[in-house]
Nucleic acid binder design. Structure first.
Length: 758
DNA sequence: TTAGGATTCG
């Protein structure tokens, strides 16, 4: 008898040769002949027939374990389907033996086991059903609780009913002023009567998981009462809900936190009918948009991923999000202390041109704080506001606000990873070519204008808690001290901004000019005069290749490829040592190889060139070492860095080579004036102030233009002192000994040009 | 208890 209904518990009643299999060990291709699976029936679908006339029946079994995927679909075919379909109840314990295991086509959607079980007489299956004690098993017909659903035009105050409806409006769950989460949901059905329900629960998961207008909900045991001459639904004891995607034709997979729930064929029909009705009767004008489609002055719903978050103040909180597309307008950047920003800094930097900053206010702050970086969100009724800079009203940028309150469903909802919109978003994000957006050089000049227009407001400091001090007070005060000041930038030096870039040695505090290309070219030519020594070619840690040059006499170029354990070595990860090449050839090589170390050969070994030349070239960045502080070691030491995946950090390379690296810095003199007095303050900065790395300015005309624009805004040429913009910055005073004399100097510190230059 | 739909201070 392939189907047996047994009263009681499974133990000791099964044939002794059968062994129990756990879902976590279940996989395709294993012999299941002597295995059985036991689980509780949590869902059964209506008995139906396949196209070929075979009877078909599907249930979901839940394993009584705490493993993550604890449910599995079980498909019955033929006579077994008919037999089981007639006697199975929700809550029954079922044992299936002699099944086939196949890949579940719906695993992605239903989150159940990646395989399903196929049960049929042909496969030699046997099914044992241990009826739930509370159900009288003598009965031949299934006993499932029968729910009746009240149409929305038949509601009476003071009753508790079951309802179906299409969501016409909703507020995603928010933290109420009481003890619970609250969600307000307005539903409508074919009677065209709508009902607004106010739902409370201390557990966020117990509230309906509505993601968009048009979703279908089923409410069980909702209390109906009258409020303001209208019917109102409210949560009562035993309230439960299921939510379904409202799209016609989409899989009917209930979203619920209930472990078990009833679901019948009739109800499936109800949902399909409601979907069809809603499609033509519910105005679903979704205000969703991608960032690429945002318009200023708009409210819309944004589906995005959270990449960073930071507290701004008690009533506002910053969310950094992206959706894979680029906002067509310059957007604001909210300045926060870097230490306050939670999220992967490297990722935030990589995505910087795709990320938008959203400020959420008041009641949304608490929820925003609890969000996990990396999660997918839908932010409802997000407001884009157009703003423009004070002195350039024709150039505007966009601010993103989630205002306080819950009007129009304003709020934030975390979307699960299996949500179809999230899946689509992830796939899109994976396809985005990030390099296209990483480079500031990919920005149009209009965008740059827009971004820099923000700068006109002021220079911002990291220390907002200090009060401003007048310059004459500073001039008459003891040294050293730190101040916040408000002043105008009367003049600055050097006027040619590229001249502000210097090389600095943090060990001996020396500053030097950046050597020019011609000097380097001369050194290279000098080296190329001596042919590479073949005896030092190919060693344990590098492979060598030599090329002859055409029409250039005897000059040979040797390239030594440093080996590492990676099987496939990409040029962009490779360090090469080059000998005999000209500057032009080195530039060409540096477009392809991650790191280049110019070398020459002695009788015994390869060695570095004179430190007037860069010791390392990484793309456009040339790294120099301090002649005074370096204590050069043999080039053999490089082999210690050639691991499996060497990162080729310039600092590490410098260290093993005994080189004290020089840093690129901006050195400028600002003459500041606040009406009470004037003083010269030095700016000494690597990249923080302008948000431009000093190391890249000399080789990028765009970055030079960018700097020029910033300075033009801080100190517009030909402007009278009165008309100059006010700047806020931090300065500190200190003493410098000049021979026998003490001199007081001022330096700008911890100051950043607002607001987005990144 | 909370909220009871109905945009924008930032």
């Amino acid at each position: 008898m392939p189907v047996q209904v047994i009263d009681g518990t499974p133990e000791n009643l099964l044939p002794s040769h059968l062994q129990k299999v756990d879902l976590k060990y279940l996989q395709m291709g294993c012999d299941q002949a002597n295995k059985y699976f036991q689980g509780t029936v949590i869902l059964s679908y209506p008995l139906t027939k396949l196209v070929n006339g075979t009877e078909f029946f599907k249930i979901v079994l839940q394993e009584n374990s705490c493993s993550k995927t604890s449910t599995i679909n079980v498909l019955f075919f033929g006579r077994l389907a008919g037999d089981c379909g007639k006697v199975v109840h929700q809550g029954d314990t079922m044992v299936v033996a002699g099944f086939n295991v196949a890949k579940s086509p719906s695993a992605n959607e239903d989150n159940r086991h990646c395989c399903h079980l196929e049960v049929s007489e042909d496969a030699g299956s046997a099914v044992y059903i241990y009826a739930k004690p509370s159900i009288v098993t003598a009965s031949e017909t299934p006993v499932a609780p029968k729910y009746t659903y009240t149409p929305l035009n038949h509601l009476k105050g003071g009753t508790i009913v079951n309802l179906y409806g299409a969501v016409k409006f909703f507020k995603p769950p928010y933290i109420s002023k009481g003890t619970d989460y609250c969600s307000v949901v307005t539903i409508v059905d074919q009677s065209n009567v709508k009902l607004t329900c106010t739902l409370f629960n201390g557990n966020l998961d117990a509230l309906p998981k509505i993601y968009k207008i048009g979703d279908i909900v089923r409410f069980h045991r909702i209390k109906i009462r009258e409020y303001n001459n209208q019917m109102q639904g409210i949560t009562g004891i035993g309230f439960a809900s299921l939510t379904f995607d409202g799209t016609v034709g989409a899989p009917i997979v209930p979203r619920t936190s209930s472990k078990s729930y009833s679901f019948t064929e009739e109800e499936q029909k109800t949902i399909e009918e409601l979907r069809t009705w809603a499609a033509s009767n519910l105005l679903v004008c979704e205000p969703t948009a991608k960032l690429s489609g945002v318009q200023p002055m708009l409210f819309f719903d944004l589906t995005c991923q959270l990449v960073g978050k930071a507290e701004v103040d008690g009533s506002s909180f910053l969310l950094k999000v992206w959706d894979g597309t680029k906002c067509p307008y310059p957007s604001w950047k909210v300045l926060v202390e870097e230490s306050d920003l939670e999220g992967d800094k490297v990722l935030i930097c990589r995505l910087r041109n795709l990320i938008v900053d959203i400020l959420v206010y008041d009641n949304h702050v608490k929820l925003a704080k609890s969000l996990k970086v990396g999660s997918f969100l839908r932010i409802y009724s997000l407001h884009t506001k157009q703003a423009s800079a004070e002195n350039q009203p024709n150039v505007s940028y966009v601010e993103f606000h989630l205002h306080g309150g819950t009007c129009y469903g304003r709020g934030i909802r975390v979307l699960p990873e299996n949500n179809p919109d999230v899946k689509e978003l992830k796939a899109f994000m994976d396809s985005v070519n990030l390099t296209e957006f990483q480079n500031v050089e990919s920005m149009s000049s209009m965008e740059l204008d827009g971004i820099f227009s923000n700068l006109s407001r002021k220079i911002l400091t990291d220390h907002q808690h200090l009060d401003d001090t007048a310059l004459n007070t500073i001039l008459n005060s003891s040294v050293p001290q730190q101040y916040r000041i408000r002043a105008k930038l009367r003049t600055f030096k050097p006027e040619k901004l590229y001249q502000s870039v210097k090389l600095y040695c943090s060990k001996c505090n020396s500053l030097q000019e950046v050597p020019n290309d011609d000097d380097f070219d001369l050194i290279l030519r000098d080296c190329a005069a001596t042919a590479p020594n073949p005896e030092v070619h190919n060693s344990l840690w590098y492979d060598s290749a030599v090329w002859d040059t055409e029409n250039q006499g005897q000059r040979k170029i040797a390239v030594h490829f440093v080996k590492h354990d990676e099987l496939l070595q990409e040029p962009e990860d490779t360090l090469i040592m080059v000998q005999g090449a000209t500057l032009k050839e080195i530039r060409k090589l540096s477009r392809r190889f991650k790191c280049i170390i110019p070398v020459r050969s002695t009788k015994e070994d390869l060695e570095l060139l004179d430190l007037s030349a860069p010791f390392l070239l990484q793309g456009k960045i040339w790294h120099y070492g301090c002649k005074q502080c370096s204590n050069q070691k043999t080039i053999q030491n490089l082999s210690s860095l050639a691991e499996e995946e060497p990162s080729w950090e310039p600092t590490e390379i410098a260290q093993v080579l005994g080189i004290e690296p020089l840093q690129y810095v901006f050195v400028m003199k600002f003459t500041l004036d606040d009406g009470t007095g004037a003083l010269d303050a030095y700016l000494f900065d690597y990249e923080k102030f302008f948000q431009i790395p000093a190391s890249e300015v000399l080789t990028s005309s765009l970055l030079q233009e960018k700097m020029e624009m910033i300075m033009n805004i801080l100190c517009p040429p030909g402007t009278k002192l009165d008309d100059l913009p006010w700047l806020e910055c931090f300065i500190k005073s200190y003493n410098v000994k000049d021979g026998m004399e003490q001199q007081v100097c001022y330096q700008i510190y911890d100051t950043v040009v607002a607001e987005d230059v990144i």
